[in-house]
Simulated scan of single mutants.
Amino acid sequence: MRTVDKLTIRFLVDNSIEWFTKLPPGFTHELPYHIQEHHLEIDKETNIPVINFDNFCCGAHGFSALIEAEIAGDSSRLILFDTGPDNTSLVRNIKAMHVPLQNIERVVISHWHADHSGGLLSFLKLRSQHSAESCVVDTHPDRPYARGIAPGPLYDKIIARLPPDPTFEEIEAAGGVVEKHDKGHFVAGDMVYVSGEIPRVTSFEQAGLLGAKRFVPGTGWKDEPSIMDERFAAVDVAGKGLVIFSACSHAGIVNVVKDAVATFSRPVIGGLHLAGDSMAPRIQPTVEWLSKSLRPSPAFILPMHCTGFVAKVSLEQALGEGVVPAGVGIKVEIVGDRDMTSDLPRLVFARCCRRRAEI
C-alpha cells in the first residue's frame, strides 16, 4: 500500500449529528465547514450567512464515509465507503456537503446489510447525472437472498427481515461496474486497502452476531452469526499511521485489529460491535485490550453508527480524549509528515457498534 500525504474524510451518513462538542485539531463540524467554504447564502438585509436547515445533513440508521486519499504531486482519489440505509439520506447529504460526485471512482460496500447498501442505487443514479463514466462497485460475492433479525434471549423467532440488498443486475443497470472480491486488494492507485474475509481468532468474539438469520431459497431460514462477507478498508498516512474504516465488526473488533496487524505489521482499529445486552460481556475485555494490550495505543477512536451508550462510556473512561464523538457532516483532515517516525500511535476510527436486534 502506498503511503499518502493527506487523508480527508467526510461522514455522509451516520445515526448521530454532532454540532457542539469540542473536537481535536483536523476535525471540523458541519456548520463551520460550510462557513469556511462559503456554502451559505448571505442574507441581503443583515449581510450575515443564513443557516438553512434544508441544506444540512440529516441523520439515519446507517453509515457512509467519503474517503479522499492524496499523494503529493499526484491527483487525489475518492472512494465512497458504504451508502447508508435508504434512497434519501445519502443523496440529501451529498448535496449538503457539496461532494464532487464526478470524482468518486469506486464504492466499497463493507457487507450485505441494508443500512450499508440501501443508498447504493440512488447514489449511482445521482452520479450518472454528473459523470458519463461508470463507477466501480466493490462487493463481496456472497450476496444473501435475505437476512433477518431474531432477538434474544432465545434468538429463535424472526421478528423482521431487512430490505433486500441491490442485486448485481440492478447495480449494473444503475451505472455501476460490479467487482466481486473476497480477498484483500488495493484500490485508488494502491492508496486504499480493502480487506478480504476477516479471520475469527479471538475467544470472546466467537459468538458473532447472535440472532442473525439468513434465508436460503428452498431451504428456509438458518443461523448466520458469522457474517463472513464483512470487510474493512485502510489508508496509511505518512508519519501518522494507519486509519481503518471498519464495517460493524460482526467479526469482532479484536479480530479486525489482529487481521490488520497480520497484514501490515502495525495496529489499526475499526468498528466495535458492542451494543445490546448480548454484547455486554464483551465490552470490558475489548476495552481492556484496546487500552492496555494494543501497542502503540490508538490516537483516536470514533464510535459512530449504532454504538451503544455503555460502550462509549467505557471507552471514554479508559482512553479519555482519545474517544472523539463524531457524526454525519463532520469533516476530518489528516495531514501526513514523511519526516516523522512510523512508530507513532496510530490514528483510529471506530466506526460502528452493532446492536443485538438492529442488524
Score class of each variant (00 low, 15 high):
V91Y: 02
P296K: 01
N52S: 09
P296S: 04
P32W: 13
R295C: 09
G220V: 04
V313N: 05
F264L: 01
N47F: 14
K44W: 14
N255R: 02
D74L: 04
R143D: 06
I104H: 03
K44A: 15
G62H: 07
A350M: 15
V237Y: 13
I301K: 00
M279N: 12
G239K: 04
G84Q: 00
M191K: 11
V328L: 04
A280L: 13
L344F: 13
E18Q: 11
L80Y: 08
D190M: 08
D223F: 01
H185S: 14
V243K: 02
G84T: 02
G241P: 09
D259L: 00
W19V: 04
T8E: 15
D259C: 02
K22L: 12
G175S: 13
P164V: 05
D165P: 04
V178R: 05
F81G: 00
G252V: 13
D54Y: 13
E205V: 05
T202R: 06
D156A: 08
Q102W: 11
N93I: 08
Q36I: 11
I227V: 14
A174V: 02
I71N: 02
V310F: 04
P85F: 10
H111T: 07
F349I: 10
E170G: 00
F56N: 01
S314A: 15
A326C: 15
R161H: 15
G308R: 03
V237L: 06
K213P: 04
G73R: 07
I359T: 14
L319H: 04
N255H: 07
H29C: 00
T219Q: 12
I79F: 03
A350C: 15
G26W: 10
S134T: 15
E45F: 13
H130Q: 09
K6C: 15
D86H: 01
V178I: 07
P153A: 06
C352N: 08
S265W: 14
G220Y: 09
A318E: 08
C248S: 14
G211M: 04
R354V: 11
D138R: 00
V348P: 00
R143N: 02
C352A: 11
S203G: 04
K183V: 15
D138I: 05
N87H: 12
I301M: 00
G118P: 09
V216C: 12
G218I: 04
P345D: 04
R147Y: 13
L101N: 06
E333R: 02
V313R: 06
I42H: 07
L209Q: 14
S117R: 02
A251W: 07
M97L: 15
S246K: 07
S293P: 00
A275E: 01
L294F: 11
E37C: 12
D115V: 13
P100I: 09
P217A: 12
M340Y: 10
V201D: 10
S117F: 15
L162V: 07
P144Q: 03
D343L: 08
